[in-house]
Design a protein around this nucleic acid. Structure first.
Length: 563
RNA sequence: AGGGGCGUGGUGCAACGGCAGCACACCGGCCUUUGGAGCCGUGGAUCUUGGUUCGAAUCCAGGCGCCCCUGCCA
């Protein structure tokens, strides 16, 4: 946090709020809310909204509620409520006692519906869904009034009460607002307010068989909660005139709605509908699959909540449709983890090396720094012995230009160990390298050369006899296309799923200190990337997820050399 | 086509009538016991046409382009 700019407005919403604060509108209160529907898991797009709404409350000494907009019992489930609560908490926010549900307001909403009927602003319509659609008109042609539009107040009251009492089947009748069937804004062409749904609700059970539409619940819920600034995404701007109409004809407290552009991220999709499709059709292994842009997926992947927050703050808030480059998220993840993750050595693709002049049976405990970015993280020791594993890619029999690692006759530094020189390569009958022989210089213990000679390469290693085995799961972007929704003719986003988004490595070799690692813990495997312990880990079976690689400038050089 | 919204480097976000800036990405260099991190640096943008003005990314008008709206979803 930069103390010099805490007062500076950082986006247009902050500016509006500050203006309201200055003019005394809302009596100087700031009240926001995060209003998810519990019909799916939260994703990083929601994180943008959460950080915005809770961040505003923090910045202006206000409050932010958590409210579930649970007006459709056929799509909503308790499991989603549970996961949403967990995810918002994990992100680091607290709503105190202020957890609400639109379903808490069903009684009040019903009364307001009656009030609209009594004042001649709503009516019960017997038209079928298809007929209502036909009567609605099109974007360019006005709609027609329903033949049931002029029913008497008494008849409407009676019918609505009988809807509530369960006398009619699903779809037989709806309650509609009486506004204007010729409005250029489709939302004002007598929108449906209540529909009949004989379905149990996850909170109200069998109490209701009619449920308010989102449009009839959202604005009033904000009103009930005395929300000052009701922040939502751009597609609801067209609904604002309806919310205004409802609030004003009801004569109740009127929050200010402000719309902003939702987050889009490159190489992924951020819509609940599509994420549900990926989960239900097993394109991924559940909502918390580490490839998913869900908060539970990112968490399992090892992404710290702090990284998501700083990312969400960096991307800004505006009204432009945009696609944020996923590399910006990756930057924030690395930025956070670099400072906090302890370093360890791990070999993902093991190649055995034998140090022929190192005494057989000897083991030395060598000191290694836990985090060069944080001295307080301290040090640890790692065992060194005659037989080690190094990364297969850190040896090259025929090294290309600028390759600094091990090769025949070359000397490299084993990190925190010794300088070693490759003397021999052992192959099997297929010509596959199975072993590399080296000699070491006993004078270079710890990786320092007393004569001051330089080596260009430093590689990591694990003592073969002391290594522990692990499974490591490597992830790549879920989609191969920058914008998977921008599909060619006859294709859809699923055609751009990356077939190589998951690679499972068995038999990886880890330094022994990692045997203590517990699910959720994060480490940097030196020279490889950041990894976290997967919850699949059990006693005797260690599983790591690669959160993200380190920046890899060698990969760039290689790429250029291939050209 | 009716209504609503939006156009600033490759990607995002600023600049609120007065020198177009920040971050990421890209490229180059320094440094390095992680080809990590860090540090330094280069290049590159106001959709278009006209108008108002001493002065326009900003205000006005037209054009063009993109997004949203015809669920008893949210």
């Amino acid at each position: 946090m930069n103390p010099t700019d805490t007062s500076a407005p950082s986006n247009f919403i902050h500016e509006m709020i500050e203006k309201d604060l200055e003019t005394g509108r809302f009596d100087g209160r700031v009240q926001t809310r995060f209003p998810p529907e519990p019909n799916g898991y939260l994703h990083i797009g929601h994180a943008k909204s959460i950080v915005l709404n809770f961040g505003i409350a923090q910045k202006y000494n206000g409050k932010c509620n958590l409210r579930f907009d649970d007006t459709n019992p056929t799509k909503e489930e308790e499991e989603y409520v549970r996961s949403i609560i967990e995810d918002v908490r994990w992100l680091g926010y607290d709503w105190g006692e202020r957890i609400f549900y639109a379903s808490d307001y069903f009684d009040q909403l019903y009364k307001w519906a009656v009030q609209l009927i009594e004042t001649g602003h709503a009516y019960v319509d017997d038209l079928s869904a298809e007929e209502i659609r036909a009567y609605r008109g099109t974007l360019t042609e006005p709609g027609k009034n329903s033949p049931y539009r002029e029913r008497s107040v008494e008849e409407n009251l009676d019918l609505f009460e009988r809807m509530r009492a369960g006398e009619f089947p699903n779809g037989a009748k709806v309650l509609r607002a009486k506004i204007d069937m010729a409005s250029p804004n489709m939302n004002l062409r007598d929108p449906v307010l209540y529909r009949i749904l004989h379905a149990p609700h996850h909170r109200t059970g069998d109490k209701w068989c009619i449920y308010p539409m989102y449009d009839f619940a959202h604005g009033q819920s904000d009103s009930i909660e005395r929300v000052t600034h009701s922040i939502c995404t751009l597609e609801f701007e067209n609904h604002r005139p309806l919310y205004d109409w409802l609030l004003d004809t009801l004569g109740i407290y009127h929050p200010q709605q402000i719309e902003f552009a939702r987050l889009n991220l490159s190489y992924t999709v951020l819509s609940k509908r599509r994420l549900i499709e990926l989960v239900e059709n097993s394109y991924v292994n559940g909502w918390d699959d580490p490839r998913m842009p869900t908060l539970s997926g990112l968490r399992r992947r090892g992404v710290p909540p702090e990284a998501i927050r700083s990312f969400a703050e960096r991307i800004g808030v505006a009204r432009n449709d945009s696609i944020i480059d996923v590399s910006l998220l990756e930057y924030h993840i690395r930025q956070d983890l670099n400072k906090r993750a302890e370093r360890r050595m791990a070999v993902l693709h093991p190649l055995k090396i034998i140090i022929t002049n190192y005494p057989e049976g000897q083991v030395e405990m060598l000191e290694a720094v836990n985090n060069p970015e944080d001295e307080s993280a301290g040090k640890r020791t790692v065992p060194f012995s005659r037989e080690l594993y190094i990364e297969r890619r850190d040896f090259n029999e025929d090294p290309p230009r600028k390759y600094f690692r091990l090769a025949p006759g070359r000397e490299v530094r084993l990190r925190y160990g010794y300088f070693v020189t490759c003397t021999n390569v052992v192959k099997d009958e297929h010509g596959e390298i199975i072993e590399v022989h080296c000699t070491y210089d006993p004078e270079t213990k710890g990786g320092y050369a007393p004569d001051g000679r330089k080596v260009r390469g430093t590689i990591h290693w694990v003592s073969a006899a002391h290594a522990i085995n692990a499974e490591v799961r490597l992830y790549d972007r879920l989609f191969t296309k920058h914008n998977p929704l921008d599909a060619e003719e006859g294709k859809d986003y699923k055609d751009y799923l990356n077939p190589n988004s998951l690679e499972v490595l068995a038999g990886c070799k880890l330094e022994p200190s990692l045997s203590e690692a517990r699910p959720g813990e994060r480490f940097q495997f030196e020279r490889l990337g950041y990894f976290s312990v997967d919850p699949d880990t059990t006693e005797g079976r260690l599983v790591f997820n690669r959160t993200i690689t380190l920046r890899d400038t060698w990969a760039k050089i290689e790429k250029q050399q291939r050209k």
